[in-house]
Design a protein around this nucleic acid. Structure first.
Lengths: 254, 254
DNA sequence: ATTCTTATGTCTTATAGAAGACTACGGCAA
DNA sequence: TTGCCGTAGTCTTCTATAAGACATAAGAAT
């Protein structure tokens, strides 16, 4: 275990420091130790972390330094702090995922998880697009998943999802729930913490139009998303085609 | 001036505290004082703030408390800290605005400020949509601005912008630059720090299609944005219709 | 041009008290 | 006895203060 004082590696004396450009402040190193432990599953989502003084003693740094590291973790939604109770590894439950990653909102402001219906599950080889987005090697075995999603009765999203088979062994044989990220975490130990999305407006192709029950050429919002795990590796590539006549994609910039 | 010790108003004794639900920690109050001073122009964008110990002495709190307040300011991009030099009010220059608020990116990854050509400038009365988004009263005088934008030779955005006339007196008589937010700040003292955007896919209307030189019905990405100033007041409503055949809207979620 | 000084922000540690939340225990009533 | 309630104690995070070591940059002195 990489436990014990993190201090030994820190703040080399001045002469040495000049030769080590990759110098990070102590609280940053503590941050990294904690992230690694969470990624390795030492503490699992939902678990309480040890108390701040405990972590401090464990790593041989002061309470305040641990606090600053935890501040960063909390700011990135990796942990959840509750005064008087403790600090918990973010559970990434439905509500959390809904607000953090699911940006499609009804024009009325209502924010609901849409139902899903699986259309097909296939094993395919990675093409060049997949290689580029997921950083897998060409021809790697992938699981491809097509589904349509609806809010209430209304069909609104056609979605194609691509996963590296090696990260999700046997997922093609499973029953697939509505909230895939929760499945990734609980069964395969892959916690999604970050995504990048590219949005375009496109016309519905004939086949997509049929799935969504609209005319070919209907304008659709195309969301091309790559999702990354806690270790920074790309884990999922998903292209969603959304009908936005009664919904929109909400983006707050600060 | 509301200078001097902020301390008097803080942490009333326990009995009183129960009657004061709007209690905020000291560092938060310091934060608010600093925001107000920046908003009032005591320190202008680009200016250096006083040193941390100076602010601490000025407000009668400890250095660490000021630091914590500045941490928040920095996290919200309101100030820029440079070790060994000082803390500066964020300049919100072109590059900053480009990265913070302009999310349309070429598919190649290139990120450029598009050129603008003004189509019309009008004075109009606020309709119900404007009232709802900008929180002005019905019938308030507004400045409406239509323009098309292009990257290089390629037309890509049609934009309609609505401003409360009272916040931007005389703007309708001015030469309008490419980067409006910079104009808002330098001439009218309105610094945009936050926006919310609603994205939809729509078909080009006949008139928009003509401006963008495409066929009517072409799928366009509609970005409906409200921009807020440092005081939290809505300052601009902008609807952009973007051709996304060679560009996309980039959204990073964490 | 190089080195030194000084000013300033950054990082770390330490201490102390406030506030929220859970647990254990004891008294009281049914 | 059994069940309920309130209180005290303890653990946790949160807020505030203070002080010193260190890093960085600007300008002065060499």
């Amino acid at each position: 275990m990489a436990s014990g004082s993190v201090r030994t590696a820190v703040r080399p004396d001045k002469a040495a420091a000049e030769e080590v450009p990759g110098f990070r402040p102590l609280y940053r190193q503590v941050y990294e130790v904690l992230v690694r432990r969470i990624a390795e599953g030492v503490w699992k989502p939902g678990d309480a972390l040890p108390s701040e003084p405990e972590i401090a003693a464990d790593l041989g740094v002061s309470h305040g330094t641990v606090r600053k590291a935890l501040d960063e973790l909390a700011a990135e939604n990796l942990v959840l702090r509750r005064q008087g109770r403790g600090t918990y590894v973010a559970s990434h439950d439905d509500a959390r995922i809904l607000f953090q990653f699911f940006k499609i909102v009804a024009d009325t402001g209502e924010h609901r998880f849409p139902e899903s219906r699986i259309l097909s599950v296939d094993i395919v080889d990675a093409d060049s697009d997949a290689v580029q987005r997921l950083a897998v090697r060409a021809g790697a075995r992938m699981v491809r998943l097509d589904r349509v999603r609806s809010v209430g009765e209304k069909l609104c999203i056609f979605e194609r999802i691509l996963l590296p088979k090696v990260m999700f062994p046997g997922i093609e044989k499973r029953a697939l729930p509505n909230n895939l990220y929760e499945l990734y975490r609980s069964v395969f130990g892959v916690t999604i913490v970050r995504t990048t999305e590219k949005l375009k407006a496109v016309g519905a192709t004939r086949s997509v139009a049929k799935h969504l029950d609209v005319a070919a050429g209907t304008p659709l919002l195309q969301v091309d998303r790559v999702a990354f795990g806690i270790d920074g590796k790309a884990a999922e590539w998903r292209v969603s085609l959304c009908l936005t006549d009664t919904t929109h994609y909400l983006s707050d910039l600060r």
